[in-house]
Design a protein around this nucleic acid. Structure first.
Lengths: 119, 119
DNA sequence: CATCGATATTGACAAAGATCGATGTGTGGG
DNA sequence: CCCACACATCGATCTTTGTCAATATCGATG
């Protein structure tokens, strides 16, 4: 007996439009929309990037710092950040020459809700 | 204020050994161990299979039913179930000729905790 | 405006993964 | 003991993806 009316204000987010896993079987559309978001975090390098940003006290990290944090080339880091950003997991903000990424808390919470059904 | 002592009884579960994303940066080992579990659910077909099983009222589903539920060949379904099982997301039980899968609630809860830090 | 430094994009390539048909394995019934 | 059925494994194929070197873009600064 749950209202599925979250589609009004924000851009259509496959996560918030989606009931918790244990509530109902997922149809093809839901699964197709959801998979890319999960694929985005299902990579060791991206997991590390995300956790570095998520755990940062200032709430944001400059790309220049991320480039040094992992043993990967600059284009590869840039690619991973793009994947995370397009999955709505990271928020991008350009300031001057630098680019800062912060985590999208809403998406993380939705992921939690997907698995738990409680959060 | 969470006790991190879950490594005594059960097989080493990379999820329960892992603090929530927002707590601390993940090292290479943690990320490498965690990624396969997330990869397992980061596929549309496996998402559907998992949700079908998770939403089932009896708490378990026979493979023979899953074979009909998705528009995929029997070997492909079997492969996906194996991936989910090896990621500790599904519990497998053979009864006679039939095989029944149920969700591993612990793993799902751990995933929730990973993203939320609260569950 | 020429240049430098920070990110992003492109193109290429190897590795991983999703899928299927064919075949193997094991269980229960006749 | 043999057959039918449920499920798993194998081998092949096609697509996706992670990675890098090279190059492009874009903003600041002299």
């Amino acid at each position: 007996m749950r209202l599925e009316s979250a589609t009004l204000t924000s851009p259509p987010n496959p996560l918030t439009c989606c009931s918790p896993l244990r509530t109902a079987p997922m149809d093809v559309q839901q699964a197709t929309d959801l998979a890319p978001i999960l694929k985005a975090i299902a990579d060791p390098s991206r997991l590390r990037l995300l956790s570095i940003i998520a755990a940062d006290a200032r709430g944001e990290v400059c790309v220049c710092d991320l480039n040094d944090a992992l043993d990967l080339s600059q284009p590869t880091i840039s690619h991973h950040l793009k994947v995370l950003h397009e999955a709505d997991l990271l928020i991008r903000e350009k300031r001057g020459v630098w680019v800062y990424y912060s985590v999208n808390t809403e998406t993380l919470n939705s992921l939690c809700a997907l698995f738990g059904g409680v959060c």
